[in-house]
Write a protein that binds this DNA or RNA. Structure first.
Lengths: 96, 96
DNA sequence: AATATGTTTCGATAATCATGGAAATATATT
DNA sequence: AATATATTTCCATGATTATCGAAACATATT
């Protein structure tokens, strides 16, 4: 992962609401969580929530899958791992 | 580390210039790097650089130490570790 | 086809952030 | 004290972001 992509992903996770959304998704597992369930759980207005999810999707941290009327949001564990790896590489040059 | 602090730190690292500054500091080691050296290395105008460093300091990712005329910027490895830990906890609930 | 449910897009407003030149501050040297 | 070096603060401008109600869109059910 290059530094631009890392920065973009860090920026998207760098917002409390989005970080909480992502956390909620990760806890939900690989099958994904419906947008409506996130809305209920985190108590965020639909339009605001949609905006934040769009941003997470735009950097590849979340993927959406539709099943009938419900849209499932699936956290991309691999991308998060990559981001963690990037930070660790930075850190470990002089530390680990 | 609570979610607010994590989000704040992620947000500050979520900017290419700041991420590059931090990377440069980490590679510089524990003794720290003078502001002027960062400026030279990354080719950022002084006022802009100062602004970004201030932000990194404001969330505890960098600490400054003065020696004569030069201000050394010291990356806080422990805080970065904590942030990485936070992300890993999120990730590992369903994955690792 | 009409209605209900789930989610997004639109649109407007307020807030925050990024940028960099010029001037100011702090410390050192002569 | 005058000058040089290192860095910041001030200031203004432009850009991006956050917020959320209302309306629109998509899919399902009756």
């Amino acid at each position: 992962m290059d530094v631009q992509m890392a920065a973009k992903r860090l920026a998207e996770l760098g917002h409390v609401t989005r970080l909480e959304i992502f956390r909620y998704l990760v806890r939900g597992g690989h099958q994904g969580v419906p947008v409506g369930e996130i809305q209920l759980a985190l108590d965020v207005p639909g339009s605001t929530l949609s905006h934040h999810i769009t941003r997470l999707v735009s950097v590849g941290l979340v993927v959406q899958r539709r099943d009938g009327r419900t849209l499932y949001c699936v956290p991309q564990y691999t991308e998060l791992d990559g981001l963690i790896g990037f930070l660790q590489e930075q850190c470990c040059i002089n530390e680990c």
